[in-house]
Design a protein around this nucleic acid. Structure first.
Lengths: 138, 138, 138, 138
DNA sequence: GTGGTCTAGACCACG
DNA sequence: GTGGTCTAGACCACT
Protein backbone atom coordinates (compact mmCIF):
# COMPACT_ATOMS: atom_id res chain seq x y z
CA UNK A 1 0.00 0.00 0.00
CA UNK A 2 1.23 3.48 -0.92
CA UNK A 3 4.18 3.25 -3.29
CA UNK A 4 7.00 5.71 -2.53
CA UNK A 5 9.92 6.40 -4.84
CA UNK A 6 12.83 7.48 -2.64
CA UNK A 7 14.84 8.54 -5.71
CA UNK A 8 12.24 11.05 -6.83
CA UNK A 9 12.96 14.73 -6.34
CA UNK A 10 9.46 15.14 -4.96
CA UNK A 11 9.59 15.11 -1.14
CA UNK A 12 8.59 11.77 0.33
CA UNK A 13 5.92 13.33 2.53
CA UNK A 14 4.28 14.92 -0.52
CA UNK A 15 4.33 11.62 -2.36
CA UNK A 16 2.63 10.04 0.61
CA UNK A 17 -0.04 12.77 0.73
CA UNK A 18 -0.74 12.30 -2.97
CA UNK A 19 -0.89 8.57 -2.55
CA UNK A 20 -3.36 8.72 0.32
CA UNK A 21 -5.58 11.16 -1.55
CA UNK A 22 -5.53 8.94 -4.60
CA UNK A 23 -6.62 5.96 -2.52
CA UNK A 24 -9.43 7.96 -0.95
CA UNK A 25 -10.64 9.26 -4.32
CA UNK A 26 -10.54 5.74 -5.72
CA UNK A 27 -12.68 4.52 -2.84
CA UNK A 28 -10.01 2.10 -1.68
CA UNK A 29 -9.83 4.03 1.55
CA UNK A 30 -13.46 4.68 2.47
CA UNK A 31 -14.56 7.60 4.58
CA UNK A 32 -14.38 6.55 8.22
CA UNK A 33 -11.64 3.97 7.56
CA UNK A 34 -8.70 3.59 9.93
CA UNK A 35 -5.37 4.67 8.47
CA UNK A 36 -2.28 2.47 8.89
CA UNK A 37 -0.42 3.45 12.04
CA UNK A 38 2.57 5.76 11.71
CA UNK A 39 4.90 3.07 12.99
CA UNK A 40 3.62 0.31 10.73
CA UNK A 41 3.73 2.53 7.62
CA UNK A 42 7.21 3.68 8.59
CA UNK A 43 8.36 0.08 8.71
CA UNK A 44 6.54 -1.00 5.57
CA UNK A 45 7.81 1.88 3.42
CA UNK A 46 11.26 2.15 5.04
CA UNK A 47 10.57 5.79 5.69
CA UNK A 48 11.36 7.86 8.76
CA UNK A 49 8.36 7.99 11.18
CA UNK A 50 8.64 11.77 11.28
CA UNK A 51 8.08 11.85 7.54
CA UNK A 52 4.89 9.79 7.89
CA UNK A 53 3.75 12.05 10.70
CA UNK A 54 4.37 15.15 8.59
CA UNK A 55 2.19 13.77 5.80
CA UNK A 56 -0.57 12.76 8.21
CA UNK A 57 -0.49 16.19 9.86
CA UNK A 58 -0.82 17.92 6.52
CA UNK A 59 -3.73 15.64 5.57
CA UNK A 60 -5.25 16.44 8.95
CA UNK A 61 -5.10 20.18 8.27
CA UNK A 62 -6.72 19.51 4.89
CA UNK A 63 -9.63 17.75 6.63
CA UNK A 64 -8.86 14.52 4.79
CA UNK A 65 -7.99 12.51 7.89
CA UNK A 66 -8.30 13.31 11.58
CA UNK A 67 -6.49 11.94 14.61
CA UNK A 68 -8.19 10.25 17.52
CA UNK A 69 -5.63 10.28 20.33
CA UNK A 70 -4.78 6.79 21.42
CA UNK A 71 -6.69 5.20 18.53
CA UNK A 72 -5.06 6.42 15.34
CA UNK A 73 -5.95 8.43 12.25
CA UNK A 74 -9.30 8.02 10.47
CA UNK A 75 -10.47 9.16 7.05
CA UNK A 76 -12.81 12.13 7.53
CA UNK A 77 -16.44 12.16 6.47
CA UNK A 78 -16.39 14.43 3.43
CA UNK A 79 -12.78 13.57 2.62
CA UNK A 80 -13.53 13.13 -1.08
CA UNK A 81 -15.13 16.56 -1.27
CA UNK A 82 -12.22 18.10 0.65
CA UNK A 83 -9.72 16.63 -1.79
CA UNK A 84 -11.67 17.71 -4.85
CA UNK A 85 -11.92 21.23 -3.48
CA UNK A 86 -8.22 21.28 -2.84
CA UNK A 87 -7.45 20.15 -6.38
CA UNK A 88 -9.80 22.73 -7.84
CA UNK A 89 -7.80 25.39 -6.01
CA UNK A 90 -4.75 24.20 -7.90
CA UNK A 91 -6.35 24.88 -11.27
CA UNK A 92 -4.33 28.10 -11.36
CA UNK A 93 -1.15 26.04 -11.68
CA UNK A 94 -2.50 24.46 -14.84
CA UNK A 95 -3.59 27.84 -16.07
CA UNK A 96 -0.13 29.28 -15.59
CA UNK A 97 1.49 26.28 -17.26
CA UNK A 98 -0.84 26.69 -20.23
CA UNK A 99 0.02 30.38 -20.44
CA UNK A 100 3.71 29.51 -20.67
CA UNK A 101 3.03 27.04 -23.46
CA UNK A 102 0.96 29.67 -25.25
CA UNK A 103 3.79 32.19 -25.00
CA UNK A 104 6.23 29.59 -26.28
CA UNK A 105 4.16 29.15 -29.41
CA UNK A 106 3.05 25.63 -28.63
CA UNK A 107 -0.32 25.10 -30.40
CA UNK A 108 -3.35 24.86 -28.15
CA UNK A 109 -4.29 21.56 -29.79
CA UNK A 110 -1.14 19.95 -28.49
CA UNK A 111 -2.03 20.97 -24.95
CA UNK A 112 -5.66 19.88 -25.20
CA UNK A 113 -4.63 16.55 -26.69
CA UNK A 114 -2.37 16.09 -23.70
CA UNK A 115 -5.24 16.82 -21.31
CA UNK A 116 -7.60 14.45 -23.12
CA UNK A 117 -4.99 11.73 -23.07
CA UNK A 118 -4.58 12.14 -19.31
CA UNK A 119 -8.34 11.83 -18.85
CA UNK A 120 -8.40 8.81 -21.13
CA UNK A 121 -5.77 7.07 -19.04
CA UNK A 122 -7.72 7.90 -15.87
CA UNK A 123 -10.92 6.38 -17.31
CA UNK A 124 -9.22 3.00 -17.67
CA UNK A 125 -8.06 3.03 -14.07
CA UNK A 126 -11.68 3.24 -12.88
CA UNK A 127 -12.65 3.36 -9.25
CA UNK A 128 -12.42 -0.03 -7.66
CA UNK A 129 -15.61 -0.50 -5.67
CA UNK A 130 -14.60 -3.89 -4.40
CA UNK A 131 -11.52 -4.34 -2.27
CA UNK A 132 -12.62 -1.36 -0.27
CA UNK A 133 -11.02 -0.74 3.11
CA UNK A 134 -13.54 0.12 5.79
CA UNK A 135 -13.43 0.22 9.53
CA UNK A 136 -16.16 1.12 12.00
CA UNK A 137 -14.97 3.85 14.29
CA UNK A 138 -16.00 1.84 17.33
CA UNK B 1 12.61 45.48 -16.50
CA UNK B 2 12.24 42.05 -14.90
CA UNK B 3 9.96 42.27 -11.86
CA UNK B 4 11.01 40.09 -8.94
CA UNK B 5 8.91 39.30 -5.88
CA UNK B 6 11.32 38.62 -3.02
CA UNK B 7 8.47 37.31 -0.85
CA UNK B 8 7.45 34.62 -3.32
CA UNK B 9 8.21 31.02 -2.40
CA UNK B 10 9.70 30.60 -5.86
CA UNK B 11 13.47 31.21 -5.74
CA UNK B 12 14.54 34.61 -6.99
CA UNK B 13 16.86 33.13 -9.59
CA UNK B 14 14.02 31.05 -11.05
CA UNK B 15 11.79 34.10 -11.23
CA UNK B 16 14.52 35.86 -13.13
CA UNK B 17 14.96 32.94 -15.53
CA UNK B 18 11.24 32.91 -16.25
CA UNK B 19 11.19 36.63 -16.70
CA UNK B 20 14.05 36.62 -19.18
CA UNK B 21 12.52 33.79 -21.17
CA UNK B 22 9.21 35.64 -21.30
CA UNK B 23 10.94 38.74 -22.64
CA UNK B 24 12.76 36.73 -25.29
CA UNK B 25 9.60 34.93 -26.39
CA UNK B 26 7.78 38.26 -26.60
CA UNK B 27 10.51 39.62 -28.84
CA UNK B 28 11.32 42.39 -26.37
CA UNK B 29 14.77 40.90 -26.03
CA UNK B 30 15.79 40.11 -29.60
CA UNK B 31 18.27 37.36 -30.46
CA UNK B 32 21.75 38.86 -30.38
CA UNK B 33 20.77 41.55 -27.90
CA UNK B 34 23.05 42.47 -25.03
CA UNK B 35 21.69 41.51 -21.62
CA UNK B 36 21.81 43.92 -18.69
CA UNK B 37 25.10 43.43 -16.86
CA UNK B 38 25.11 41.28 -13.75
CA UNK B 39 26.04 44.24 -11.59
CA UNK B 40 23.49 46.66 -13.04
CA UNK B 41 20.64 44.16 -12.71
CA UNK B 42 21.82 43.41 -9.21
CA UNK B 43 21.54 47.09 -8.31
CA UNK B 44 18.25 47.61 -10.11
CA UNK B 45 16.51 44.62 -8.53
CA UNK B 46 18.27 44.90 -5.16
CA UNK B 47 19.43 41.33 -5.53
CA UNK B 48 22.87 39.93 -4.84
CA UNK B 49 25.08 39.70 -7.98
CA UNK B 50 25.66 36.01 -7.36
CA UNK B 51 21.94 35.38 -7.57
CA UNK B 52 21.78 37.16 -10.93
CA UNK B 53 24.81 35.17 -12.04
CA UNK B 54 23.12 31.92 -11.08
CA UNK B 55 20.12 32.76 -13.24
CA UNK B 56 22.32 33.83 -16.15
CA UNK B 57 24.42 30.67 -15.84
CA UNK B 58 21.34 28.49 -15.97
CA UNK B 59 20.07 30.37 -19.02
CA UNK B 60 23.53 29.87 -20.51
CA UNK B 61 23.32 26.11 -20.05
CA UNK B 62 19.89 26.23 -21.68
CA UNK B 63 21.42 27.96 -24.73
CA UNK B 64 19.19 30.99 -24.21
CA UNK B 65 22.01 33.44 -23.52
CA UNK B 66 25.79 33.06 -23.66
CA UNK B 67 28.59 34.88 -21.94
CA UNK B 68 31.48 36.68 -23.57
CA UNK B 69 33.89 37.28 -20.70
CA UNK B 70 34.68 40.95 -20.37
CA UNK B 71 31.86 41.92 -22.73
CA UNK B 72 28.66 40.67 -21.15
CA UNK B 73 25.86 38.20 -21.83
CA UNK B 74 24.13 38.07 -25.21
CA UNK B 75 20.86 36.45 -26.28
CA UNK B 76 21.73 33.37 -28.34
CA UNK B 77 20.73 32.89 -31.94
CA UNK B 78 17.98 30.30 -31.71
CA UNK B 79 17.03 31.34 -28.18
CA UNK B 80 13.31 31.26 -28.97
CA UNK B 81 13.57 27.72 -30.30
CA UNK B 82 15.61 26.66 -27.28
CA UNK B 83 12.96 28.01 -24.91
CA UNK B 84 10.11 26.39 -26.82
CA UNK B 85 11.91 23.07 -26.77
CA UNK B 86 12.45 23.39 -23.07
CA UNK B 87 8.78 24.13 -22.46
CA UNK B 88 7.69 21.22 -24.63
CA UNK B 89 9.76 18.95 -22.40
CA UNK B 90 7.62 20.12 -19.48
CA UNK B 91 4.37 18.95 -21.05
CA UNK B 92 4.53 15.94 -18.71
CA UNK B 93 3.87 18.25 -15.76
CA UNK B 94 0.61 19.35 -17.32
CA UNK B 95 -0.23 15.76 -18.09
CA UNK B 96 0.24 14.77 -14.48
CA UNK B 97 -1.81 17.71 -13.22
CA UNK B 98 -4.64 16.74 -15.57
CA UNK B 99 -4.48 13.17 -14.30
CA UNK B 100 -4.93 14.41 -10.74
CA UNK B 101 -7.93 16.49 -11.76
CA UNK B 102 -9.38 13.49 -13.56
CA UNK B 103 -9.02 11.34 -10.44
CA UNK B 104 -10.62 14.10 -8.36
CA UNK B 105 -13.71 13.95 -10.55
CA UNK B 106 -13.21 17.39 -12.04
CA UNK B 107 -14.90 17.36 -15.48
CA UNK B 108 -12.58 17.49 -18.47
CA UNK B 109 -14.51 20.49 -19.81
CA UNK B 110 -13.49 22.55 -16.80
CA UNK B 111 -9.84 21.82 -17.50
CA UNK B 112 -10.07 22.48 -21.22
CA UNK B 113 -11.94 25.72 -20.58
CA UNK B 114 -9.08 26.74 -18.32
CA UNK B 115 -6.55 25.98 -21.05
CA UNK B 116 -8.51 27.89 -23.65
CA UNK B 117 -8.83 30.85 -21.35
CA UNK B 118 -5.05 30.88 -20.82
CA UNK B 119 -4.50 30.84 -24.59
CA UNK B 120 -7.07 33.59 -25.01
CA UNK B 121 -5.23 35.81 -22.55
CA UNK B 122 -1.96 35.12 -24.32
CA UNK B 123 -3.43 36.13 -27.67
CA UNK B 124 -4.16 39.62 -26.33
CA UNK B 125 -0.60 40.07 -25.10
CA UNK B 126 0.71 39.67 -28.66
CA UNK B 127 4.36 40.05 -29.54
CA UNK B 128 5.41 43.66 -29.44
CA UNK B 129 7.48 44.32 -32.54
CA UNK B 130 8.11 47.90 -31.56
CA UNK B 131 10.13 48.75 -28.49
CA UNK B 132 12.39 45.84 -29.27
CA UNK B 133 15.78 45.72 -27.59
CA UNK B 134 18.55 45.01 -30.01
CA UNK B 135 22.31 45.38 -29.99
CA UNK B 136 24.62 45.21 -32.97
CA UNK B 137 27.17 43.20 -31.01
CA UNK B 138 29.69 46.01 -31.16
CA UNK C 1 39.03 10.10 -2.66
CA UNK C 2 39.06 12.86 -5.30
CA UNK C 3 42.42 14.62 -5.29
CA UNK C 4 42.25 18.38 -5.82
CA UNK C 5 45.17 20.67 -6.60
CA UNK C 6 44.28 24.10 -5.25
CA UNK C 7 47.27 25.64 -7.05
CA UNK C 8 46.16 24.46 -10.48
CA UNK C 9 44.88 27.07 -12.91
CA UNK C 10 41.91 24.81 -13.55
CA UNK C 11 39.01 25.78 -11.27
CA UNK C 12 38.55 23.53 -8.27
CA UNK C 13 34.97 22.70 -9.20
CA UNK C 14 36.06 21.54 -12.67
CA UNK C 15 38.76 19.37 -11.17
CA UNK C 16 36.13 17.80 -8.98
CA UNK C 17 33.78 17.21 -11.92
CA UNK C 18 36.55 15.51 -13.86
CA UNK C 19 37.51 13.45 -10.85
CA UNK C 20 33.98 12.23 -10.25
CA UNK C 21 33.50 11.35 -13.91
CA UNK C 22 36.77 9.42 -13.90
CA UNK C 23 35.65 7.42 -10.88
CA UNK C 24 32.30 6.64 -12.48
CA UNK C 25 33.89 5.57 -15.76
CA UNK C 26 36.32 3.35 -13.86
CA UNK C 27 33.41 1.69 -12.09
CA UNK C 28 34.72 2.77 -8.69
CA UNK C 29 31.52 4.75 -8.26
CA UNK C 30 28.79 2.40 -9.46
CA UNK C 31 25.51 3.66 -10.89
CA UNK C 32 23.08 4.10 -8.02
CA UNK C 33 25.86 4.71 -5.49
CA UNK C 34 25.53 7.41 -2.87
CA UNK C 35 27.95 10.29 -3.36
CA UNK C 36 29.91 11.73 -0.43
CA UNK C 37 27.83 14.47 1.16
CA UNK C 38 28.61 18.06 0.25
CA UNK C 39 29.68 18.83 3.79
CA UNK C 40 31.87 15.77 4.26
CA UNK C 41 33.67 16.30 0.95
CA UNK C 42 34.05 19.93 1.84
CA UNK C 43 35.79 18.97 5.06
CA UNK C 44 37.89 16.22 3.50
CA UNK C 45 39.19 18.35 0.63
CA UNK C 46 39.34 21.60 2.61
CA UNK C 47 37.14 23.23 0.02
CA UNK C 48 34.14 25.47 0.60
CA UNK C 49 30.80 23.60 0.54
CA UNK C 50 29.48 25.95 -2.15
CA UNK C 51 32.33 24.93 -4.43
CA UNK C 52 31.46 21.26 -3.95
CA UNK C 53 27.82 22.12 -4.56
CA UNK C 54 28.68 23.87 -7.80
CA UNK C 55 30.46 20.78 -9.07
CA UNK C 56 27.62 18.51 -7.99
CA UNK C 57 25.05 20.81 -9.61
CA UNK C 58 26.90 20.74 -12.90
CA UNK C 59 27.13 16.95 -12.74
CA UNK C 60 23.40 16.96 -12.00
CA UNK C 61 22.65 18.96 -15.14
CA UNK C 62 24.82 16.50 -17.07
CA UNK C 63 22.66 13.62 -15.78
CA UNK C 64 25.68 12.04 -14.09
CA UNK C 65 24.38 12.37 -10.54
CA UNK C 66 21.05 13.57 -9.17
CA UNK C 67 20.02 15.03 -5.85
CA UNK C 68 17.41 13.74 -3.47
CA UNK C 69 16.91 16.58 -1.00
CA UNK C 70 17.46 15.41 2.52
CA UNK C 71 19.06 12.16 1.35
CA UNK C 72 22.07 13.12 -0.73
CA UNK C 73 23.36 12.82 -4.29
CA UNK C 74 23.23 9.51 -6.14
CA UNK C 75 24.99 8.36 -9.30
CA UNK C 76 22.40 8.26 -12.09
CA UNK C 77 21.43 5.14 -13.95
CA UNK C 78 23.05 5.68 -17.34
CA UNK C 79 25.78 7.90 -15.90
CA UNK C 80 28.50 6.13 -17.90
CA UNK C 81 26.61 6.69 -21.14
CA UNK C 82 25.97 10.32 -20.24
CA UNK C 83 29.68 10.91 -19.66
CA UNK C 84 30.68 9.16 -22.87
CA UNK C 85 28.20 11.24 -24.82
CA UNK C 86 29.54 14.38 -23.27
CA UNK C 87 33.10 13.46 -24.15
CA UNK C 88 32.13 12.61 -27.71
CA UNK C 89 30.75 16.11 -28.07
CA UNK C 90 34.24 17.39 -27.23
CA UNK C 91 35.86 15.61 -30.14
CA UNK C 92 35.93 18.95 -31.96
CA UNK C 93 38.52 20.19 -29.48
CA UNK C 94 40.84 17.41 -30.50
CA UNK C 95 40.11 18.12 -34.11
CA UNK C 96 41.09 21.74 -33.72
CA UNK C 97 44.26 20.85 -31.83
CA UNK C 98 45.24 18.45 -34.60
CA UNK C 99 44.63 21.17 -37.18
CA UNK C 100 47.01 23.46 -35.34
CA UNK C 101 49.66 20.75 -35.25
CA UNK C 102 49.14 20.15 -38.95
CA UNK C 103 49.62 23.84 -39.70
CA UNK C 104 52.76 23.87 -37.54
CA UNK C 105 54.29 21.16 -39.69
CA UNK C 106 54.23 18.52 -36.99
CA UNK C 107 54.05 15.13 -38.79
CA UNK C 108 50.78 13.25 -38.44
CA UNK C 109 52.68 10.21 -37.20
CA UNK C 110 53.82 12.13 -34.13
CA UNK C 111 50.23 12.96 -33.25
CA UNK C 112 48.92 9.48 -33.86
CA UNK C 113 51.73 8.00 -31.81
CA UNK C 114 50.71 10.31 -29.01
CA UNK C 115 47.10 9.13 -29.25
CA UNK C 116 48.08 5.49 -29.29
CA UNK C 117 50.31 5.99 -26.29
CA UNK C 118 47.43 7.56 -24.38
CA UNK C 119 45.21 4.59 -25.21
CA UNK C 120 48.00 2.21 -24.22
CA UNK C 121 48.28 3.85 -20.81
CA UNK C 122 44.50 3.66 -20.37
CA UNK C 123 44.49 -0.06 -21.15
CA UNK C 124 46.77 -0.72 -18.18
CA UNK C 125 44.51 1.19 -15.79
CA UNK C 126 41.65 -1.20 -16.52
CA UNK C 127 38.33 -1.00 -14.73
CA UNK C 128 38.64 -2.20 -11.19
CA UNK C 129 35.70 -4.49 -10.53
CA UNK C 130 36.73 -5.04 -6.93
CA UNK C 131 36.71 -2.19 -4.46
CA UNK C 132 33.59 -0.85 -6.10
CA UNK C 133 31.46 1.62 -4.16
CA UNK C 134 27.82 0.74 -4.13
CA UNK C 135 24.82 1.69 -2.08
CA UNK C 136 21.48 -0.05 -2.01
CA UNK C 137 19.63 3.25 -2.00
CA UNK C 138 18.36 2.62 1.50
CA UNK D 1 43.63 40.59 -42.04
CA UNK D 2 43.18 38.60 -38.83
CA UNK D 3 39.56 37.63 -38.34
CA UNK D 4 38.29 38.00 -34.76
CA UNK D 5 34.99 36.64 -33.52
CA UNK D 6 33.88 38.88 -30.67
CA UNK D 7 31.10 36.44 -29.74
CA UNK D 8 33.50 33.57 -29.15
CA UNK D 9 34.21 32.56 -25.58
CA UNK D 10 37.91 32.43 -26.44
CA UNK D 11 39.56 35.67 -25.30
CA UNK D 12 40.09 38.11 -28.15
CA UNK D 13 43.80 38.42 -27.43
CA UNK D 14 44.20 34.65 -27.74
CA UNK D 15 42.32 34.63 -31.01
CA UNK D 16 44.68 37.30 -32.26
CA UNK D 17 47.75 35.34 -31.15
CA UNK D 18 46.48 32.24 -32.93
CA UNK D 19 45.69 34.24 -36.01
CA UNK D 20 49.14 35.82 -36.20
CA UNK D 21 50.84 32.47 -35.70
CA UNK D 22 48.70 30.94 -38.43
CA UNK D 23 49.70 33.68 -40.83
CA UNK D 24 53.38 33.24 -39.99
CA UNK D 25 53.18 29.45 -40.42
CA UNK D 26 51.40 29.91 -43.74
CA UNK D 27 54.16 32.21 -44.92
CA UNK D 28 51.76 35.10 -45.37
CA UNK D 29 53.69 36.98 -42.73
CA UNK D 30 57.33 36.34 -43.62
CA UNK D 31 60.10 36.43 -41.03
CA UNK D 32 61.30 40.00 -40.78
CA UNK D 33 57.98 41.46 -41.87
CA UNK D 34 56.55 44.52 -40.15
CA UNK D 35 53.43 43.85 -38.14
CA UNK D 36 50.40 46.15 -38.41
CA UNK D 37 50.61 48.89 -35.80
CA UNK D 38 48.67 48.48 -32.61
CA UNK D 39 46.53 51.50 -33.40
CA UNK D 40 45.70 50.50 -36.96
CA UNK D 41 44.82 46.93 -35.97
CA UNK D 42 42.71 48.27 -33.13
CA UNK D 43 40.74 50.40 -35.58
CA UNK D 44 40.47 47.68 -38.23
CA UNK D 45 39.25 44.98 -35.85
CA UNK D 46 37.23 47.26 -33.57
CA UNK D 47 39.19 45.93 -30.64
CA UNK D 48 40.57 47.79 -27.66
CA UNK D 49 44.24 48.80 -28.21
CA UNK D 50 45.18 47.24 -24.89
CA UNK D 51 43.92 43.92 -26.19
CA UNK D 52 46.13 44.18 -29.28
CA UNK D 53 49.07 45.13 -27.10
CA UNK D 54 48.47 42.16 -24.83
CA UNK D 55 48.56 39.79 -27.81
CA UNK D 56 51.70 41.40 -29.23
CA UNK D 57 53.41 41.23 -25.84
CA UNK D 58 52.64 37.54 -25.51
CA UNK D 59 53.93 36.91 -29.04
CA UNK D 60 57.02 38.88 -28.08
CA UNK D 61 57.68 36.65 -25.09
CA UNK D 62 57.23 33.65 -27.37
CA UNK D 63 59.96 35.02 -29.69
CA UNK D 64 57.49 35.19 -32.58
CA UNK D 65 57.67 38.97 -32.96
CA UNK D 66 59.87 41.58 -31.36
CA UNK D 67 59.41 45.27 -30.80
CA UNK D 68 61.72 47.94 -32.19
CA UNK D 69 60.94 51.05 -30.17
CA UNK D 70 59.73 53.81 -32.39
CA UNK D 71 59.43 51.53 -35.44
CA UNK D 72 56.91 48.86 -34.52
CA UNK D 73 56.80 45.08 -34.16
CA UNK D 74 58.62 42.75 -36.57
CA UNK D 75 58.33 39.02 -37.14
CA UNK D 76 61.38 37.36 -35.59
CA UNK D 77 63.90 35.34 -37.53
CA UNK D 78 63.09 31.79 -36.50
CA UNK D 79 59.48 32.63 -35.79
CA UNK D 80 58.25 29.50 -37.57
CA UNK D 81 60.52 27.30 -35.48
CA UNK D 82 59.45 29.10 -32.31
CA UNK D 83 55.81 28.49 -33.10
CA UNK D 84 56.35 24.84 -33.97
CA UNK D 85 58.25 24.33 -30.75
CA UNK D 86 55.48 25.97 -28.82
CA UNK D 87 52.85 23.76 -30.42
CA UNK D 88 54.92 20.66 -29.75
CA UNK D 89 54.91 21.61 -26.07
CA UNK D 90 51.13 21.49 -26.21
CA UNK D 91 51.12 17.87 -27.35
CA UNK D 92 50.39 16.97 -23.73
CA UNK D 93 46.96 18.59 -24.08
CA UNK D 94 46.12 16.25 -26.91
CA UNK D 95 47.50 13.37 -24.93
CA UNK D 96 45.26 14.18 -22.01
CA UNK D 97 42.20 14.59 -24.24
CA UNK D 98 42.93 11.21 -25.81
CA UNK D 99 43.22 9.66 -22.35
CA UNK D 100 39.79 10.98 -21.46
CA UNK D 101 38.32 9.53 -24.63
CA UNK D 102 40.00 6.23 -23.87
CA UNK D 103 38.52 6.17 -20.38
CA UNK D 104 35.09 7.01 -21.83
CA UNK D 105 35.25 3.93 -24.02
CA UNK D 106 35.50 5.83 -27.29
CA UNK D 107 37.32 3.57 -29.77
CA UNK D 108 40.82 4.64 -30.74
CA UNK D 109 39.86 4.45 -34.41
CA UNK D 110 37.34 7.24 -33.94
CA UNK D 111 40.02 9.47 -32.50
CA UNK D 112 42.62 8.64 -35.15
CA UNK D 113 40.06 9.20 -37.89
CA UNK D 114 39.42 12.60 -36.41
CA UNK D 115 43.13 13.42 -36.45
CA UNK D 116 43.55 12.23 -40.02
CA UNK D 117 40.59 14.29 -41.11
CA UNK D 118 42.10 17.38 -39.53
CA UNK D 119 45.36 16.76 -41.37
CA UNK D 120 43.45 16.19 -44.59
CA UNK D 121 41.72 19.53 -44.26
CA UNK D 122 45.05 21.22 -43.56
CA UNK D 123 46.57 19.71 -46.70
CA UNK D 124 43.98 21.44 -48.87
CA UNK D 125 44.69 24.81 -47.28
CA UNK D 126 48.28 24.59 -48.42
CA UNK D 127 50.83 27.27 -47.68
CA UNK D 128 50.37 30.22 -49.94
CA UNK D 129 53.81 31.10 -51.25
CA UNK D 130 52.52 34.02 -53.26
CA UNK D 131 50.86 36.98 -51.63
CA UNK D 132 53.59 36.96 -49.05
CA UNK D 133 54.03 40.03 -46.87
CA UNK D 134 57.64 41.01 -46.49
CA UNK D 135 59.38 44.09 -45.28
CA UNK D 136 63.09 44.80 -45.07
CA UNK D 137 63.99 45.92 -41.63
CA UNK D 138 65.83 48.96 -42.84
C1' DG E 1 21.90 14.79 9.31
C1' DT E 2 20.92 16.02 4.05
C1' DG E 3 20.69 19.60 -0.01
C1' DG E 4 19.25 24.52 -1.58
C1' DT E 5 18.89 29.64 -1.57
C1' DC E 6 20.71 33.97 -0.68
C1' DT E 7 23.87 37.41 0.96
C1' DA E 8 28.46 39.60 1.24
C1' DG E 9 32.88 40.33 -0.08
C1' DA E 10 37.64 39.19 -1.93
C1' DC E 11 40.34 38.29 -5.91
C1' DC E 12 41.28 37.22 -10.74
C1' DA E 13 41.09 37.52 -15.97
C1' DC E 14 39.47 40.06 -19.96
C1' DG E 15 38.71 44.54 -22.43
C1' DG F 1 33.87 48.31 -16.99
C1' DT F 2 32.68 43.05 -17.83
C1' DG F 3 32.09 37.95 -16.09
C1' DG F 4 34.06 33.98 -13.03
C1' DT F 5 35.88 31.60 -8.92
C1' DC F 6 36.05 30.96 -4.20
C1' DT F 7 35.16 31.75 0.63
C1' DA F 8 32.13 32.42 4.66
C1' DG F 9 28.05 32.28 6.95
C1' DA F 10 22.88 32.64 7.62
C1' DC F 11 18.56 30.46 6.96
C1' DC F 12 15.28 27.21 5.01
C1' DA F 13 13.07 22.63 3.72
C1' DC F 14 13.32 17.63 3.94
C1' DT F 15 14.47 13.15 6.48
Amino acid sequence: MFQIDPMSRKPVYEQLIDSVERYVLAGILAEGALMPSVRSLSAELSVNPNTILKAYSELDSRKVIHSVPGRGYFVCDGAVAAISGHKLARMSELSQLASEFAAAGIPVDTVIACVNEAYGRAAHTETNTNGRITDDKG
